[in-house]
Simulated assay, not measured.
Amino acid sequence: MIRIKIKTQYFIRVFLLLLFFTSCVSKKNIVYFQNDEIDQSKVSNSYKTIIKPDDLLQITITAQDAEAVKPFNLSAVTYSTTSNSAIGVAQQQNYLVDNNGEIDFPVIGELKVGGLSRDDVINLLKNKLEPDYIKNPNINIRIANYKISVIGDVRKPGSYTIPNERITIIEAIALAGDINISGQRNNIMVQREEEGKKVQYRVNLLSNKINISPVYYLQQNDVVYIEPNYAASQSASYNQNTGLFISIGSILISLITILTR
């Protein structure tokens, strides 16, 4: 009886120790920017928005001659199918970039904008408009459907619209409520479309090298995926029967402890 009691107490202590250590998360696995010194001269704050297929461009042209710009600032309205009258307030016409990277712009016709930066598109339009159509045009371009997605082991996964078209991977994770304690911070995947192909990057938020990563600044439609760690993956695979067996085991250990006192 004494031998059984000793073995039971030993088993309980080992079980509690294992439970304690498996529930602890090492500080080195959760603290951001703790490793690797970087050359600050390589850290850049510059960022260019690259136009891609499926972007919805809002292009506004202004000039001293208000009449001259009217044909290039079309309004979009919705018409009733019964009365054939306009519904709601007219809004600025947006231009969808097709799979070939082109838009159909008023008067000028088709323009190849895919793969160009915002500044490149502005210069392209200025060359097309001046001086034949408009003198000294001012052109503003924004992407009306600029968004990024954060999925995986974060508090608020989802897609987020970015009105200023500039966001870092750190800011994106902050929008999603930060990574859960069970999420892997050293192997984050960013999926991006480049030249019609899906490209994947891996980044480590525990390292300062994230600041010089090509995906530090996200682009429209980027997807950030945070993978759960091994313990979280294993726990997710447990079914209801596993939980039941654990409960039964706990009850049996308690009964054995009481009976062997």
Results as ranks from 00 to 15, higher is better:
Ile4Met: 10
Lys5Glu: 03
Thr8Gln: 11
Phe15Ala: 11
Leu16Ser: 11
Tyr32Pro: 04
Gln34Trp: 04
Asp39Met: 04
Asp39Tyr: 05
Gln40Lys: 13
Lys42Gly: 02
Val43Ser: 08
Ser44Asn: 08
Ser46Leu: 10
Ile50Ala: 06
Gln64Arg: 14
Asp65Trp: 06
Ala66Pro: 00
Glu67Arg: 12
Val69Arg: 15
Pro71Glu: 08
Val77Trp: 00
Ala86Trp: 01
Ile87Gln: 11
Gln91Asn: 13
Asn94Val: 12
Asn99His: 07
Asn100His: 10
Gly101Glu: 01
Gly101Trp: 01
Ile103Tyr: 02
Val107Cys: 05
Ile108Val: 14
Ile108Pro: 12
Leu116Gly: 02
Ser117Ala: 09
Asn123Gly: 01
Leu125Thr: 08
Asp132Thr: 13
Tyr133Gly: 05
Pro137Val: 07
Pro137Met: 09
Ser149Phe: 13
Asp153Asn: 11
Val154Thr: 04
Arg155Ala: 09
Pro157Glu: 08
Gly158Met: 11
Asn164Cys: 00
Ile167Leu: 08
Ile173Asp: 00
Ala176Val: 02
Asp178His: 06
Ile179Glu: 06
Asn187Ile: 00
Glu193Ser: 10
Tyr201His: 15
Ile212Pro: 06
Ser213Ala: 06
Pro214Ser: 08
Gln219Met: 10
Gln220Ile: 03
Val224Thr: 10
Glu227Cys: 00
Tyr230Asp: 10
Ala231Thr: 11
Gly243Thr: 03
Ile246Phe: 12
Gly249Lys: 03
Leu252Val: 15
Ser254Asp: 03
Thr257Ser: 12
Thr260Asn: 14
